[in-house]
Design a binder for these strands. Structure first.
Lengths: 283, 283
DNA sequence: TTCAAGTTGTAATTTTACTACATTTGGTGT
DNA sequence: ACACCAAATGTAGTAAAATTACAACTTGAA
């Protein structure tokens, strides 16, 4: 944990002299890491052992160790924190906040991914007779994106926005078909029903959804992503991004499993797009 | 500059004993920052002054200062690097690589966003009579997502996948309409044509695309995102994510500009979804 | 071979951090 | 209000760590 934050938080628990030290350090941490314990003591107007005791209170071995921690905190430069957008934010502020909290969410999501399930699902997908991607609302565009990716793989892949089409498609499923259902909450009724229908028709159902949700319970495999969602905004933001990244992971796993020849095929698909594009100068 | 890299680069310029020190430090920098000069000297099988000289050669004031620099380098650890997926990667490896390179790309994208243009575009969007989002291929799902977001704002918003529908829709544009075109490369012919059609019909055209591309040249405003794309994979990955995040930024700017009452309205829109969902236990 | 420049080590010195103990402060109960 | 105790702080001495000065060794060119 960041030692600067730690100082700020524990500030109340410090003694009078320790508070002085904390103040001086927080006011100018850059100076602090380049000072000896004597200089810092003088700056804080306390004795050297007080500074030493201050360091130990923060669970460091002593002053040099404390400086090391401090140096690391400063280097980190507040990595990516989930800072919420505020009403009075300037465009510059909300732009940075959104990018940063998206990155922070991806970090959290990354840690929550169960790699074993990813591997198993990639297995399934490579062997599937037909792959379907369904999602509703904000997750529809994620399914749409998945279609785009897997379509390039030259495998039978299906995507519908329409609930009835989704249902009908699942009715026609058979063993060997994989249905991937995407929903952040996992509580959308119609999607849960679709999971049931697909399973009744022997399809394997993969859920990209919240763990232990009603949808998750109907799935054969669940890829759950723990994403802290900014509920102030009333719309999904980070969860979609995490879902998309997971789709990227699955797609990548798919191509890796299929091997070299398959990737050459991908390149061919991409080359066919060339006719629809303006050439880049110098190509 | 990162001192670890500096050690690696200068390695040739070091003397025999200094190389020993460099080796030991590079092999286990975590240990190094927690060792005294004596221990490190013993580990490297050299004398203490040699270690000290080594530190000075790297433009530090001495051993303690060197440790500080080292600690900072380790903390920095180049947070998220764009590491390419390798053929022999395990599921664990490629999952982490993809998440990390996505985060790295977002960081690059964040720095390349022109906030002034963002602000101007938010202006335009809030005043628009009608907003259209068009993209093709991988960018179609981004446009789809934008539809989803802006639809909640209760503004006239349009999205088509079909090229002909896109063209017809642009034919019917008039002053006050905003057309947002999404394309990573900015070289897709039909999208460039759509930009021209929209502009001919007095619409304002915003491009979320590569700077100085043919598409960018046809746009009234360009939101360019510099995203390092992994060309090995032959499919767009990070660029979509950056585009989506930018859409989030625009949507957020939109709601902020519209003020408090508007956000209450958003909440109402969200609440109407409740009927279609299973309640969360404890709600 | 010899000398000089560069490299490395030894030992002394200085700086820095830490410990043990003494003093002070502030609060509590009588 | 006073005595007493515990916590907090400082002083002075000690140990450890880093640095310096200098001596010894290596290496390569004349």
């Amino acid at each position: 944990m960041n030692i600067l934050e730690k100082i700020t938080q524990n500030q109340a628990a410090f003694s009078k002299s320790e508070k002085k030290v904390a103040e001086v350090i927080l006011a100018n941490p850059q100076t602090a890491i380049h000072s000896s314990i004597a200089t810092l003591a003088k700056m804080s107007d306390v004795s050297e052992p007080t500074v030493n005791r201050f360091c130990r209170r923060l669970d460091t071995k002593g002053f040099p160790d404390f400086k090391l921690h401090l140096a690391q905190s400063l280097a980190n430069g507040t990595p990516y924190v989930n800072r919420h957008v505020d009403e009075n934010d300037s465009p510059d502020e909300y732009t940075n906040k959104i990018f940063e909290s998206t990155m922070a969410s991806l970090e959290v999501a990354r840690q929550s991914v169960n790699v074993n399930v990813v591997n198993r699902v990639v297995d399934l997908l490579t062997q599937a007779q037909k792959i379907s991607f369904f999602g509703l609302g904000a997750s529809a565009s994620v399914a749409h994106d998945a279609l785009n990716k897997f379509f390039r793989f030259n495998v039978p892949v299906v995507y519908f926005e329409d609930i009835l089409m989704q249902r009908m498609s699942c009715m026609n499923c058979s063993a060997g078909d994989v249905v991937v259902l995407i929903s952040h909450t996992g509580r959308t009724k119609s999607l849960v029903e679709i999971a049931q229908i697909a399973r009744m028709n022997d399809a394997t159902v993969v859920g990209i959804t919240s763990a232990e949700s009603p949808l998750a319970q109907e799935c054969s495999y669940v890829l759950s992503l723990e994403v802290p969602e900014d509920t102030d905004m009333y719309m999904p933001m980070a969860s979609r991004i995490a879902q998309l990244t997971l789709i990227d992971v699955l797609a990548t796993g798919f191509t890796l499993r299929r091997g070299n020849k398959f990737r050459e095929n991908l390149k061919r698909v991409k080359d066919t797009l060339r006719g629809s594009r303006y050439e880049k100068r110098g190509d």
